[in-house]
Amino acid sequence: MKLIVQIPCLNEEETLPSVLATIPRQVPGVDEVEILVIDDGCTDRTVEVAREHGVTHFVHHARTQGLGRSFRDGVVRSLELGADVVVNTDGDNQYPQERIPDLVRPIVEGRADLVIADRQTHLIGHFSPLKKLLQRVGSAVVNRAAGTDLPDAASGFRAYSRESLMVLNAITRFSYTMETIIQAGNKRLKIESVPITTNAKSRESRLFRSTPEHVAKSAAAIVRSYMMYKPYVLFAWLTAVFGFLGMIPFVRYGILWLRNREDGHLQSLLLGALLLILAFMSLMLGVISDLIRSNRVLIEDNLEHTKRSRFHVPYPGVDLPARAPVRGLDRAAER
């Protein structure tokens, strides 16, 4: 079994040595441990530092592509290298790499497809009360959308089984963390959480410039991911709300008509008609979005088949003859 630890980096020459030095080279249940550094448009000596510390696998981006794209390209390269388990960590030394064996263990033992480190944000000293509250609210919203019960949905310290990577498809460039949980939950993957204690803060986050920006982008990612799997829920609610509100003016006008007081109340009919039109439009959008969802499911099935063929990963319960992993990356070439 091969484990690949991938590290997305954006100018991490100062902290990367600490990360590389603490990654265990021996993990119970794993035969090989290799490290992959994703150079997301670094302009400092990050790549040189990684080479000096023995890293031989890289993915290079000429310009900064974002964390989501870095994660996707790293996963593709890891699968090409024959990874059975992929651990994603950060180059800022936020996470305790010594806990990688604990992240990998549930996958090695066959108990989980995805393992997420719980940073226990309530114990992090440099997190403000507002940030801790937003973390709890964000995790609760993601759990609601995914049907999961995870204490820290935003944690990027994770372990993925090869099987899970066959069915997960990150889309957003901002951050894949919440999106992949919603996908994994709706695809009935087994997810576990492992509590950890984070390292001391080394720098400010480069993923967002302010808390409002982080909240806005995270909310957009959650809504987009949820709409991919259950669009009919939103439109069903909109149809019900607009339909109920639209009937109120008609009922009011009917009561006035029975009392011979209908004159001068045509505005009620106009308002009711407008709301009922909105209800009908919501219903039609719900039908269309559900058809699009069905089409996306077929596309994802085809994408999974393509991945399994490319990386020679059989479907569960099906054995295929051994073959060397495919080499080469189309858009993020190894140097």
Results as ranks from 00 to 15, higher is better:
3 L>C: 13
16 L>F: 12
19 V>E: 01
19 V>S: 01
25 R>E: 05
27 V>W: 01
33 V>S: 03
36 L>E: 02
40 D>L: 10
42 C>P: 00
44 D>I: 11
52 E>P: 00
55 V>C: 04
55 V>E: 06
60 H>E: 11
62 A>H: 09
63 R>D: 11
63 R>H: 13
65 Q>L: 14
68 G>E: 04
74 G>S: 12
74 G>I: 09
74 G>P: 06
74 G>A: 13
78 S>D: 04
78 S>M: 05
80 E>G: 10
82 G>C: 03
83 A>K: 01
85 V>E: 00
89 T>E: 04
92 D>A: 12
93 N>W: 13
99 R>V: 12
101 P>C: 10
107 I>F: 08
109 E>Q: 15
109 E>C: 02
110 G>L: 11
115 V>W: 02
117 A>I: 10
118 D>T: 11
120 Q>D: 01
121 T>L: 10
126 H>V: 12
128 S>T: 15
129 P>M: 07
129 P>A: 06
132 K>W: 03
137 V>H: 03
142 V>A: 10
143 N>L: 14
145 A>Y: 11
145 A>M: 11
146 A>V: 06
148 T>F: 12
148 T>E: 03
148 T>P: 04
149 D>Y: 10
149 D>G: 06
150 L>G: 02
151 P>M: 14
151 P>S: 15
152 D>N: 13
156 G>D: 02
157 F>S: 01
158 R>S: 07
159 A>W: 12
161 S>N: 05
167 V>I: 13
173 R>T: 12
175 S>E: 06
177 T>W: 01
177 T>N: 08
178 M>E: 08
180 T>Y: 03
180 T>F: 03
184 A>F: 05
184 A>V: 09
185 G>Q: 01
188 R>A: 15
197 T>E: 07
204 E>A: 13
207 L>F: 01
209 R>T: 14
210 S>D: 03
211 T>Q: 06
213 E>V: 09
214 H>D: 14
217 K>W: 09
218 S>F: 06
220 A>L: 11
221 A>V: 15
225 S>E: 02
226 Y>A: 15
227 M>H: 12
229 Y>F: 15
230 K>Y: 06
236 A>T: 10
236 A>R: 11
237 W>L: 13
238 L>M: 15
239 T>S: 05
240 A>P: 00
242 F>G: 02
244 F>R: 09
248 I>T: 11
249 P>K: 12
251 V>W: 08
251 V>C: 14
254 G>I: 07
254 G>W: 12
255 I>T: 08
261 R>N: 14
261 R>S: 10
262 E>L: 07
267 Q>N: 08
270 L>N: 03
275 L>W: 02
280 F>Q: 06
280 F>W: 10
281 M>T: 10
283 L>M: 04
284 M>N: 01
287 V>F: 08
288 I>L: 13
288 I>Y: 07
293 R>W: 05
294 S>V: 07
294 S>L: 12
295 N>K: 15
296 R>I: 00
297 V>K: 01
297 V>D: 00
298 L>V: 02
299 I>Y: 00
300 E>K: 00
301 D>V: 00
303 L>C: 00
305 H>N: 09
306 T>S: 05
307 K>G: 02
309 S>W: 13
312 H>M: 11
316 P>H: 09
317 G>A: 07
318 V>Q: 02
318 V>A: 03
319 D>T: 14
323 R>Y: 04
324 A>E: 13
325 P>S: 05
328 G>F: 07
328 G>V: 10
329 L>A: 13
334 E>I: 09
